[in-house]
Design a protein around this nucleic acid. Structure first.
Lengths: 161, 161
DNA sequence: TTGTGTGCAAAGCATTTGCAATACT
DNA sequence: AGTATTGCAAATGCTTTGCACACAA
C-alpha cells in the first residue's frame, strides 16, 4: 500500500482527503500487525484526539470498497485489517486472535521449485489463477488472502521469549 | 466431513453425542452453501423445534476446536461455516455475503500443469506447504482456506437467471 | 458555496455467558 | 448417579446509523 498513490486515487475518484483519512491510511501502511479497527483508532487518536471510532470504520469501509485493505482473522477480538498487498499466507491464532504472516512474495510455485531442486520459474501467485476462474463466473475480485487457523507458539505454551 | 467418522471421534474423545449435535453435524455435512450459525439453527429447528441458537454456537465451537469446521466469509450477515475439507478457494461477495466455491480438488499445481500442457503431477495443495512452514514457528494448524473478496455476478448486475 | 466527511450517541446484530433443568454414558 | 450439555434470556461487544456541525474542494 503506497500512501502517495492511494492519496492520488482518492482525489481522482472524487473522495475528500481529510486529516483523519490520511492518518488512518498512514497508520495502516506502517502497521505490520493486522490491527483491529479499535487499535487503529487508539493509535491515530494519540495524534488526533478528536478522532471518532465511527470515522475509522467508515474509512475502512471506503478502503475496502476500493480494494485497498483486506479483512482478516476471526474469532477473538473482532475483524483485523491489512493493506491489500500481494497474496500471502496468514496464520490466525484461534486462542489469542493474533495473525502471523508467512512470507510468500516468491509464490508457492517458486517455493516448491526451490524445495525440490527444480529451477525457479517466474512466480505465478494463486491470485492470478483465481482471477481468471472468477471472471468466468462473473465475480469481480478486489483482494484476497490465504488463511490458516490454529494455535500459535505462545498459546501452545511453547513460547520461549 | 464424514459423519460416521466424526461421531466416532466425539465418542473417543469423551464428548457426548446428543441429538442436537448429530443434527448440526448432519446439516453441515450435507450443506454446500456455507451456512451461518443462524441458518444452521433454522434448518435443524424444523426437525428439532426445541433447538436453541446457543447450542448451535456451542457445537460449532466444539467442531472448530476439533478442526472439523472452518470459518469463512466476512462482512455481511455474520460468520459462515463449512466442513474442513481439502483446501479450496472461496469467493466471498462483499455485498450479499454469499460464498462461492471454486473447485480446487486437483490442487493449483495440477490446474497449472493442465493449463500449460505439462503432464499432471500428484496434487500438492498449499496446505502441506503451509503446515511445514507453520511448524517451524511453533504454530499448530487446524484448518485453512484460500479466500478472495469481491462482488458476485448477481450483485454486479450481470445476473441472467 | 456545496456537499462530503466527522463525531457523538444511540441502535442493531452476532455471539457469548450464567444457570437451572435435562439427558447422555 | 454423575456430569456434560441444553435452552432460555440477559449480557457483551463489535459495527453501523442518524443527525447536526465542520470543513475540503
Amino acid at each position: 500500500m503506497n500512501v502517495q498513490q492511494l492519496v492520488g486515487r482518492l482525489r481522482a475518484e472524487g473522495h475528500k482527503l481529510t486529516p483523519q483519512r490520511l492518518a488512518i491510511i498512514e497508520a495502516l501502511a506502517q502497521n505490520r500487525t493486522h490491527p483491529t479497527a479499535y487499535e487503529i483508532y487508539a493509535e491515530v487518536r494519540s495524534r488526533y484526539p478528536m478522532m471518532g471510532l465511527a470515522t475509522v470504520y467508515k474509512t475502512l469501509d471506503l478502503l475496502k470498497d476500493l480494494g485497498e485493505v483486506v479483512e482478516t482473522g476471526f474469532g477473538t477480538g473482532g475483524t483485523r485489517y491489512e493493506p491489500n498487498l500481494h497474496p500471502h499466507v496468514n496464520l490466525v491464532c484461534r486462542k489469542c486472535g493474533r495473525v502471523v504472516d508467512v512470507g510468500l512474495g516468491e509464490g508457492i510455485e517458486d517455493w516448491r521449485a526451490k524445495h525440490e531442486g527444480r529451477p525457479t520459474r517466474e512466480a505465478r501467485p494463486p491470485m492470478q489463477w483465481v482471477t481468471e476462474v472468477a471472471s468466468e463466473v462473473g465475480f469481480t475480485i478486489q483482494g484476497g488472502h490465504i488463511e490458516y487457523f490454529g494455535v500459535c507458539a505462545t498459546c501452545n505454551g511453547e513460547d520461549k521469549v
